[in-house]
Design a protein around this nucleic acid. Structure first.
Lengths: 360, 360
DNA sequence: GGTCGGACTGTAAGCGCTTACACTCTCACC
DNA sequence: GGTGAGAGTGTAAGCGCTTACAGTCCGACC
């Protein structure tokens, strides 16, 4: 119960220590350390040297409090495990760390958590400078509230109006899959992971579905395809869906799985039944998951890690101060520059899981 | 260029606003909000209500600066993508968030980065209350410096003397694999992912290697096994290693792969050569990766997510103040309680990739 | 009835930075 | 030679909390 903290953590040096040691004022130290202008080169060098010798680093809490900026970016994800998400996060983390930002991650178990995080001021406000949301739908009013709080936002996987985003063209994904399958002669097709086609919806499954159907149609194929929604986008969902398809009296000859992970499950089911992917039934996935090549899965590749990196870069860019120019615009706000929307490239990767329709 | 920040972020309420609104002092608000004692129940309720109505949340930067505690936990990992790491992180994140800690993640590209992070005060000191390091060797002096800075440390995957840890018994892992393979009649064995056996080393590959060899020995088998080190612990490394093994004039009949991911690569190589795992060559991995069941890989399971969660719990526990009791001990430090060391359970999971040695 | 301890509450001093503003020099220029 | 514009530096006022310390009140107890 002494005055000190029990653990005798050695007193660390503060900006004042450095200032007196270097024989300058704290203001100068502050400016020198942050590379601000108006510090003589010689002074800066000296201060930096002294600081280095003393092992000084600015206390982030103090900086944040004083400057009002946190130098922290928060990544919001449905869940951290899972290849897709962790890969995106990895890409984003690398860029953020490189740029000197701390990276906070928060997993949202449910949409409810999302609301809590976005609407209430918990993770926003004075806690983070920017948000990268991955595969999370941000409602316009939520986005507004985020902006109002002075927090930047970038989304990957889907877009949020008025904010930068990086995503792929999901309709084209479906179309590519359809083209590939049709070219191989398949006519009895199914989708795994489909969502009821709601023409108003813009979520990923719906778009891919739409693109796929559209692709078929442009080849003159009917669209009374069997569709199964594997409840979850993972292996289990895929397996269940494939099982259901195969139990059908007239199973499809080719299947479009909306994610590679689902496709893995589907392939398991195939294996269990002694069927060979690509020979007995063709299957194409989406992602080019790191294990797709292990099971020779044909897929529509997206380069997930780079999405994360790109999103981080957009975010950081968006957080730069408005640059002082053009502030003379008569409006009250800075000129509303169109936010960057990156549509990342996708690519068909043909492997063994798709083949010509079986002769019968 | 006005006095305000350009973006007109609506003034958020401070503790003073709440205090005056509630008709109490800031001290009372602070205490009430944090559930500290010495606040009348009625007062607390009132304050909390007012705060809620005003949408008040304490500014974390200010709290940190004033209290000296960050309510932040940092997770240090070799890389964020990859099933093992992201799964551990997911487990840890859930627990930390639940307990009200922010979770910072930092990926270390190299051991050099690690030193930077641990030795220099970058991520320590006033930035985080605790560290959970995943599969990262922390040198004793690094650990000391961390402790001295008042930062708690927990490691998963390996242990750091004097700090809590959660890991598995890697020698037993090797032994289990050996037992299984020997019981199936295999005698010509190999290891993928082995490290040169340095009897002083306690890193994961070495321990598993040692356990495996020991297991063989206890069955009376010689140990002039072929060993291949797949440079990396991933799919590629496994594939290369298996290729090398198969190119040998007398290839093994069974292989112990030190990670499931390597085993996947090995299985790919098998497939490429028209060999069937479990029939032509048995292979057993370690992890029970989420896709192991997809390729029917026999493996020694560890439940990775729970490791992360357990580590987080240990950390949080370790960060609790010393509890004031027993402070009367004549020593200058609190009684040095043995840190918890959790040795998590492992389990053999038999699937199709291992089978009786082929009749020849 | 006076006193004392405990339960509450308030006052104010920081925590370690950032930054507006003021100030001191140098020069370049007329 | 005087002046004004920078360039470089210092002073000090916060940023929004936490918390030691100092009350104030009230009921219990002698």
């Amino acid at each position: 119960m002494g005055t000190t903290n029990g653990t005798s953590r050695s007193k660390r040096s503060t900006i004042e220590d450095v200032a007196s040691e270097a024989g300058v004022s704290v203001a100068t130290v502050s400016r020198a350390m942050r590379g601000l202008p108006n510090v003589a080169i010689s002074t800066r060098a000296h201060v930096v040297a002294v600081a280095g010798r003393m092992g000084y680093t600015a206390d982030p809490a103090a900086s944040r409090l004083a400057a009002g900026t946190t130098k922290t970016i928060t990544v919001v994800i449905p869940n951290l495990s899972g290849w897709y998400f962790s890969t995106v996060v990895a890409g984003a983390e690398a860029v953020c760390t490189e740029a000197g930002y701390d990276v906070l991650v928060v997993g949202i178990g449910s949409q409810k958590d999302l609301s809590r995080i976005l609407s209430e001021q918990y993770h926003l406000e004075r806690r983070t400078d920017g948000l990268v949301v991955i595969d999370v739908a941000v409602a316009p009013d939520q986005a507004d509230s985020i902006t109002q709080r002075g927090v930047a936002l970038t989304s990957v996987g889907s877009r949020t109006a008025g904010h930068p985003s990086v995503r792929i063209d999901n309709e084209t994904v479906g179309r590519i899959a359809a083209d590939h399958l049709v070219e191989l002669g398949h006519e009895r097709l199914a989708i795994i992971g489909a969502q009821k086609d709601n023409p108003l919806s813009f979520d990923v499954p719906t778009l891919r579905h739409r693109g796929f159907i559209g692709g078929l149609a442009s080849h003159g194929l009917a669209v009374d395809d069997v569709r199964l929604e594997g409840g979850n986008f993972g292996v289990d969902g895929g397996q269940e869906a494939m099982a259901a398809l195969l139990d059908h009296p007239e199973p499809p000859t080719a299947v479009f799985s909306m994610s590679d992970e689902m496709a893995f499950g589907a392939i398991m089911e195939l294996n269990d039944r002694g069927l060979v992917p690509g020979r007995d039934l063709s299957i194409i996935g989406v992602d080019d998951h790191e294990f797709s090549r292990v099971v020779a899965l044909t897929t529509v590749r997206q380069s997930v890690a780079s999405h994360g990196a790109a999103a981080a870069r957009l975010l950081i860019e968006a957080m730069q101060p408005p640059d002082g120019q053009g502030a003379a615009a008569d409006g009250q706000l800075a000129a509303p520059i169109e936010p960057a929307e990156i549509v990342a490239p996708i690519e068909l990767v043909v492997r063994g899981s798709t083949g010509r329709v079986a002769q019968r």
